[in-house]
Design a protein around this nucleic acid. Structure first.
Length: 563
RNA sequence: UGCCGGAUGGUGUAAUGGUAGCACAACAGACUCUGGAUCUGUUUGUCUAGGUUCAAGUCCUAGUCCGGCAGCCA
């Protein structure tokens, strides 16, 4: 966690009354569940959270906040084969970083394994579930396909007492994985496959990260999820649209719950977030990590929350982004430019300004008699409260090599032979001559300096650092991870579209104040880009900077258009 | 070809029978000690065909296209 990300426990202000808000308001108005609003964010701890999860988090926690309710964080750990403790901790850190608080309401699906097991027995006793011995290879055949009904298992009408006995022996560990399973007895002819006697408990001889060796039978998602919601008193179970077809089963479980005192939760579905120039599936992100195409889950190019955090994104920007994107059932693809807009807007307000030169060119001042030793510079013109600092000045400066051109194109406002330019916070430079190396390259731009009071008419301002005072710092220039808007869904593998230039490391020369940057601190290197001091590789006095994203560059556009 | 969803500018969304609006992007201009920021303006849209109505993005009918569902994953 960084020092400058103040985790404001508030969602972005509501911009529109989307359908989830409408549903909740109608429920409150109708007095359903006593007008209470309880939501939950239920990640499976089998991977790191990404920007897509951020949408769900902002909705789940945001709705609870907005309507005076609460939101539970729940680890959906019903499959010990895939889940790990490492993820459980990372998930909590990420949700907290995003600015949300679950109070004392941290749950695990596994907290309710006893109750779930008891409920399963109850279903058996009521003839609503049975132990099935159809082997997995044959089950496909029994289940049928969406267009054709399935056929009933030969064990479907096994007496409850027999099923109960077998189920208890399953629980006792008497059977191998896959040998038996517990199914709900619903309707093998249903057009909804999820209602064709779905498996609700399976045998898994696996150590569970939370319950250890206590169980060898584990509930399936479709059975466990509605129960978790009911047991926790969740009123609004908000999830993504691929669960829409599961809703009848969700309702079946809830309706068969005998305890009428529990809350009656309802499931509502919204579309997932998808972004251009990235991939979002856990599988593909894992692939990038495992094949070392990125440095890890927190590589600043990754769309994971830890990656975005390390890249310099702020929680506020992500929350605003999610609010702007909105909530619908339409499967959309959001332009990553919108996310970039949100982070630019936030960073513009909060990032301290500094000067740093990425591709240095030497400037020598010929009239060195009356130079100031330092000049004052505002830390953030957008925020006067950020104060000012003194920046050392001298007769030898470094400027950006792009800021000098011997033969400038039209509308070039920077330094040119015989021309003048303003240097940020420190007066003006007028180029009197240049010195070149034997290859004919400009190595030194000799200038006459004029104080700020000179009021020279210039169109441009450039940044600079004093050469003898400059601190070399490592700077990582990150760019989009992929070269095409939709690396997914192409004919070729998504990895063929990896951007070979997504990371370029250079040494920049910065004003001295930059050396004191604390890990996680955010800056704008004026006229260049927003940067964050890396939380992993920075050392005291030797920060490493990650480029969050470049400043808008109108000149680059003009230049490109001219070509 | 079964079931469940969905379709509004390039992108994301709003309008809940009454002037199709907002944001991003793009483009043009103003301003500026960041070619940043800010401000102004411009371009571009209701999937199709019928119907109801004084009035339809919205309601009805038929179609088209897109997404999801056939793990003892979540």
């Amino acid at each position: 966690m960084t020092t400058t990300d103040s985790a404001t426990p508030a969602a972005a202000p509501a911009t529109n009354k989307h359908f989830i808000r409408q549903i909740i308001e109608a429920d409150i108005a109708a007095g359903r569940n006593g007008g209470r609003v309880v939501t939950r964010f239920p990640p499976e701890p089998n991977g790191y959270l990404h920007i897509g999860h951020a949408k769900a988090i902002c909705i789940d926690f945001g709705m609870a906040q907005e309507y005076g309710g609460r939101c539970h964080l729940r680890m959906d750990d019903t499959n010990p084969v895939k889940e790990e403790l490492e993820y459980i901790n990372a998930i909590q850190e990420d949700v907290r970083w995003l600015g949300f608080d679950w109070g004392g309401h941290l749950y695990h699906a596994s907290d309710f394994f006893d109750q779930m097991y008891a409920f399963a027995e109850s279903l058996i006793q009521r003839g609503k579930a049975y132990v099935c011995a159809v082997p997995q290879e044959e089950w496909k055949d029994y289940r049928g396909v969406p267009t054709r009904p399935g056929k009933e298992s030969p064990w479907r009408n096994r007496p409850p007492a027999e099923s109960l006995d077998l189920f208890r022996r399953m629980e006792a560990g008497e059977f191998k994985e896959g040998e038996l399973c517990l199914r709900a007895k619903i309707d093998m002819a249903s057009p909804n496959i999820h209602l064709r006697d779905p498996v609700i408990y399976r045998i898994l001889h696996a150590e569970h990260p939370h319950t250890g060796a206590k169980w060898c039978v584990y509930p399936m998602y479709d059975f466990a999820h509605p129960l978790e919601d009911a047991f926790e008193g969740v009123t609004h179970s908000l999830c993504s649209i691929e669960f829409e077809v599961h809703r009848p089963l969700y309702d079946w479980v809830i309706e068969n719950l005998e305890d009428s005192t529990t809350t009656r939760p309802h499931q509502n579905e919204f579309a997932r977030l998808d972004l251009t120039y990235t991939v979002m599936s856990k599988r593909k992100l894992l692939e990038l990590v495992e094949e070392k195409l990125v440095s890890g889950w927190d590589d600043p190019r990754m769309p994971t929350l830890c990656g975005l955090r390390r890249r310099g994104y702020t929680p506020a920007a992500i929350r605003t982004f999610v609010e702007i994107v909105g909530v619908t059932k339409f499967n959309s693809l959001t332009d990553v430019a919108l996310l970039e807009h949100c982070i630019r807007e936030d960073l513009n307000q909060i990032a301290l300004r500094r000067m740093a030169v990425l591709k240095p060119l030497k400037v020598t001042i010929e009239n060195a008699e009356n130079l100031p030793a330092t000049v004052a510079a505002q830390n953030n013109p957008e925020d006067p409260a950020a104060g000012t600092r003194q920046v050392p000045f001298s007769r030898e400066l470094l400027i950006e090599s792009d800021d000098f051109m011997e033969a400038p194109p039209p509308k070039y406002f920077r330094l040119t032979p015989g021309g003048s330019v303003r240097i940020r916070n420190a007066g003006f430079l007028t180029c009197t001559r240049v010195e070149k190396n034997t290859a004919g390259e400009v190595r030194n731009v000799v200038c006459r300096w004029s104080p700020p009071t000179a009021e020279l008419k210039v169109k441009g301002t450039i940044h600079w650092v004093s050469a003898p005072h400059a601190k070399p710092v490592t700077v990582r220039l990150y760019d989009r991870l992929f070269t095409v808007p939709e690396p997914d869904g192409q004919e070729q593998d998504f990895k063929t579209f990896l951007n070979p230039h997504s990371l370029e490391q250079v040494t920049a020369y910065a004003e001295p104040a930059v050396a004191d940057a604390q890990p996680g601190e955010k800056f704008q290197f004026e006229r260049v880009a927003y940067f964050v001091a890396d939380t992993v590789d920075s050392r005291p006095g030797a920060p490493v900077f990650n480029r969050t994203l470049p400043l808008r560059d109108t000149w680059a556009k003009v230049e490109k258009a001219g070509k």
